[in-house]
């Protein structure tokens, strides 16, 4: 803001088919950022390809290309760009599409709060900066290690000894269903099925869990809060929601609060589930190897002020109790 600071402004991109929106956002951000505007996905991709963009905020419904499709391509072209969806009305399909394909960081509804918008974009920019910086040091390290053995391909790092079989924890309310899932996928990875939240906590205290596949319909406890508690305690565990609940609000929360990896709606073809699980396991490995890939974790490090709800703290207590029980048993 001050004149004397000679500092390159961060590039941010807004995509919306409504020029007035673009104009309005431009006026909001132009003083602090270098604002790029695009009225459709194709123009946006052109910009992304030519300029490093830290944050992309896109509308969902646009002629030619839907927002989540654009963000999916953005993720490929510029993986570090923090992706957000700004939409006038969120039907579940759009939300699920944005999380599953675009892996969006935030889902924002129109009309937005100016202040929140400024905060979120700023947060995005900082995440981008931090991730990029970490990545660069990582690259540096790797460049140093290149002479040793591994070429830079496939998995970039092999820091830990890979587990023989990563653990996938299924948390569901019906035993029959969990049993069936374990039967299906038990061979591909170490699948464990539990039918209650406390059992899940105990299982996670026993050994590291790569992926937690959970329903969000537990009756007494809000599933999103449950997964949030898990995420905070075990940041490297990737959460996948597999549910029959079609609730747009829950879905939005699962993106904004959990940064859920996938939101799958039952019934879901089995091959798709197993494909998702493979991806999730891969993601979990990446989290362990390069923590900066965990965008939400980055965000929390940058901006730790988050409300802790009552339910969350209760859940936390239950989690601690499970851990304590296990520790006692070990002794």
């Amino acid at each position: 803001m001050s004149k004397n600071v000679i500092e390159e402004k961060s590039n941010i991109l807004f995509v919306d088919d409504e020029p007035m929106i673009l104009s309005s956002l431009n006026m909001l951000f132009k003083n602090k950022y270098k604002v790029y505007l695009a009225e459709n996905g194709f123009d946006a991709l052109e910009i992304i390809k030519s300029v490093p963009i830290k944050v992309v905020v896109s509308d969902q419904r646009m002629p030619g290309m839907l927002g989540h499709e654009l963000l999916r391509q953005v993720k490929e072209i510029s993986p570090n760009s923090v992706r957000m969806l700004l939409t006038g009305y969120s039907d579940l399909d759009a939300i699920i599409g944005s999380v599953n394909a675009g892996e969006v960081f935030r889902f924002i509804n129109k009309p937005w709060q100016g202040e929140f918008m400024l905060y979120v974009v700023k947060l995005g920019v900082e995440i981008y900066d931090k991730v990029t910086k970490l990545q660069e040091t990582e690259m540096q390290k790797q460049d140093d290690a290149v002479t040793e053995e591994h070429p830079v391909s496939g998995h970039r790092v092999h820091i830990e000894v890979e587990e023989a079989s990563p653990t996938v924890l299924f948390v569901d309310y019906s035993e029959e269903e969990t049993g069936r899932l374990v039967d299906k996928y038990g061979s591909a990875f170490n699948a464990v099925a539990v039918n209650s939240i406390d059992a899940a906590f105990q299982e996670m205290a026993k050994k590291p869990v790569s992926v937690i596949v959970s329903n969000i319909n537990f009756g007494d406890v809000d599933g999103v809060s449950f997964l949030d508690t898990v995420r905070r305690e075990y940041p490297n565990t990737v959460s996948v929601i597999l549910t029959e609940v079609k609730d747009a609000q829950l879905a939005i929360r699962s993106i904004n609060e959990l940064n859920v990896f996938r939101y799958l709606v039952k019934p879901m073809p089995e091959d798709q589930i197993s494909h998702t699980l493979e991806k999730a396991i891969e993601r979990s490995k990446a989290f362990k190897a390069t923590p900066h890939k965990n965008v939400l974790k980055m965000a929390e490090e940058i901006s730790p002020e988050r409300m802790v709800r009552n339910e969350e703290s209760t859940l936390r207590l239950r989690l601690r109790a499970a851990q304590a029980l296990l520790a006692k048993n070990k002794k």
């Binding site: 929106i21 309005s24 419904r61 939409t87 009305y89 129109k110 937005w112 100016g114």
Partner: peptide, 19 residues
Amino acid sequence: GLAHEINTPLGYVKNNIEM
């Protein structure tokens, strides 16, 4: 459809007024 159609102008109207 309507929510989307209304929220879009509402988005910038509100933003502009805030600014």
